[in-house]
């Protein structure tokens, strides 16, 4: 079982949702790591949850990307560690350079909170083994800045090298380039995505479409 830690920056607000989803699949609560900590030794998977780190006041994720713990995350990533960033976590990963591109304001300039559907581009990664390739699943989204952008060469590279993790399957509401909802690092050990699989892991909350992502990680 992957030893898992969830990063907590001031202003993060989906850490509880994420911890519940992780615990449900892993049978074990993740460690919560305060942003001033720098020792991530012993951890296999670092999760950066959603929210508004530091109020997202300069740019979403910009200030969190400069925090002490993110230096440690870079080291963790460099030695092949796993990283999952969701929503603000994805923004922090792009701001810190661990994933390419950037998340701009939604094309319609409004916050978008609704269920979206994602298509699984590949199921041979540690994050997606419990999905089928091409499977379309539902996930809530809740963001003001989810409009993925990168220069055309980067987009071509992401597509060419199989680094697109998920695409918006029905409607590309936030205007993301090539409908990209989530991407991998070249070694497929870092995943960033905008929607929230962690908020759909319980039939009571409307479904379990997000659960296979956590089951995949639990099986790793």
């Amino acid at each position: 079982m992957l030893a898992t830690g969830i990063l907590l920056f001031p202003g993060i607000n989906r850490e509880r949702d994420m911890a519940i989803a992780v615990e449900q699949s892993f049978g074990r609560a993740p460690r919560v790591i305060w942003h001033k900590e720098t020792d991530l030794s012993g951890l296999d998977l670092i999760i950066i949850p959603g929210g508004f780190s530091f109020g997202d006041y300069l740019r979403c994720g910009a200030m969190a990307a400069q925090s002490p713990v993110m230096q440690a995350v870079k080291t963790h990533a460099a030695r092949g560690g796993y990283v999952l960033g969701v929503c603000n976590g994805f923004q922090i990963l792009t701001e810190s350079g661990l994933l390419p591109g950037a998340l701009l304001r939604n094309a319609g300039l409004r916050f978008l909170s609704m269920d979206t559907t994602l298509s699984v581009e590949r199921n041979d990664t540690i994050f997606t083994s419990h999905y089928q390739k091409g499977q379309v699943f539902r996930a809530p989204m809740a963001h003001g800045d989810g409009n993925y952008t990168a220069d055309p060469a980067t987009l071509d590279r992401l597509e060419g090298e199989g680094l697109v993790a998920f695409r918006y399957a029905d409607e590309n509401r936030n205007g993301s380039a090539r409908a990209i909802a989530g991407i991998y690092s070249p070694n497929h050990r870092i995943l960033g995505l905008m929607p929230h699989p962690e908020d759909l892991v319980d039939p009571l909350m409307g479904g379990t479409d997000g659960k296979p992502l956590f089951d995949s990680l639990a099986a790793a």
Partner: peptide, 11 residues
Amino acid sequence: FDQYDSTVGGQ
């Protein structure tokens, strides 16, 4: 209500 986060907290 599509502009309000109604799911944070997961409950």
